[in-house]
């Protein structure tokens, strides 16, 4: 007997590649529709993160860490790297949950590759992510932190991030069609995870018991955020966290497996369920 799961995963992947042009065009339209009625338009995409960076710097950088260095670097740099990843992942995860539910009424054909809708969000937000990462690198260089060979592993962590988000988003978007509560539940979970992923404070320097800190390292969001920090701050190579790496990728594969299974099981009935 064939492992049909592998064929299904391949089908989903092929759909993404075959319709990549469509994904790009839809992403472009999504952005336009979102900011159509705002006077400042796309400017909000930059203003919003800037306000958040300012706020967290005030509360955590000055109030909590009292201007001290975190994990050996200035807090603002440590924060910017983490927040760049977090804002992208958070926006994508929350945006993708409703991607199928929102768009399905406009999709007039059953054979439309609905599985690309979560990917549209993933690709659409990449511009913001790129811009913020660029800005972070500029600030780092201005502060005397220069690129090293370790920056090469940014590529690896970028692939990690996209794989994780793709797998989770397909699953989330499908579950939201079936059970609408999922979206609200996920919002609450993300609010909790913001503090448990070490975005604004260093989990290692907290007074939590050691076993709890080890559990925190299982969090895929932490794996990605810390990965970006390891690369940009030239701390260590990704293969030095072997166990975390295996755990992360097993988790991603499991998400992808469950996501595709649910997707193919319920796809013909999506329209009935909405």
């Amino acid at each position: 007997m064939k492992v049909t799961a592998m064929i299904e995963i391949k089908t989903i992947m092929k759909a993404q590649i075959a319709h990549f042009g469509l994904i790009l065009r839809l992403a472009h339209y999504d952005e336009r529709a979102t900011y159509q009625n705002h006077y400042l338009g796309l400017f909000w995409q930059f203003l919003n993160p800037l306000i958040q960076v300012g706020l967290y710097y005030l509360i955590f950088g000055l109030g909590f860490y009292n201007g001290k260095k975190v994990a050996g670097v200035a807090f603002i740099i440590w924060l910017l790297i983490g927040l760049t990843c977090w804002l992208y992942m958070n926006a994508t995860i929350l945006g993708a949950t409703t991607s199928i539910v929102r768009q399905l009424p406009f999709v007039s054909k059953l054979n439309f590759p609905v599985s690309i809708l979560p990917t549209v969000i993933l690709i659409g937000r990449l511009i913001n992510f790129g811009a913020m990462l660029g800005l972070t690198v500029l600030i780092m260089v201005s502060q005397g932190i220069y690129p090293t060979v370790m920056w090469l592993q940014l590529g690896y962590y970028f692939v990690c991030m996209l794989s994780f988000l793709f797998s989770l988003n397909l699953l989330s978007a499908t579950i939201t069609v079936l059970i609408r509560d999922y979206q609200i539940a996920l919002q609450s979970v993300m609010r909790v995870l913001f503090y448990l992923s070490g975005v604004v404070w260093d989990l290692n320097s907290t007074y939590f018991p050691a076993w709890l800190k080890r559990i925190f390292t299982l969090n895929p969001l932490t794996y990605i955020i810390e990965g970006f920090r390891n690369s940009l701050l030239s701390r260590h190579w990704f293969w030095q966290d072997g166990q975390q790496m295996v755990f992360f990728w097993t988790f991603v594969m499991l998400l992808l497996l469950i996501g595709t299974q649910l997707y193919f099981k319920f796809r013909p009935r999506f329209m009935d369920l909405i």
């Binding site: 007997m1 492992v3 049909t4 799961a5 497996l257 299974q261 099981k265 319920f266 796809r267 013909p268």
Partner: peptide, 13 residues
């Protein structure tokens, strides 16, 4: 009807 999960898939999961 939708395809049910096959045994190899379950084993993989």
């Amino acid at each position: 009807k939708a395809q049910p999960m096959t045994w190899p898939t379950r084993l993989l999961a």
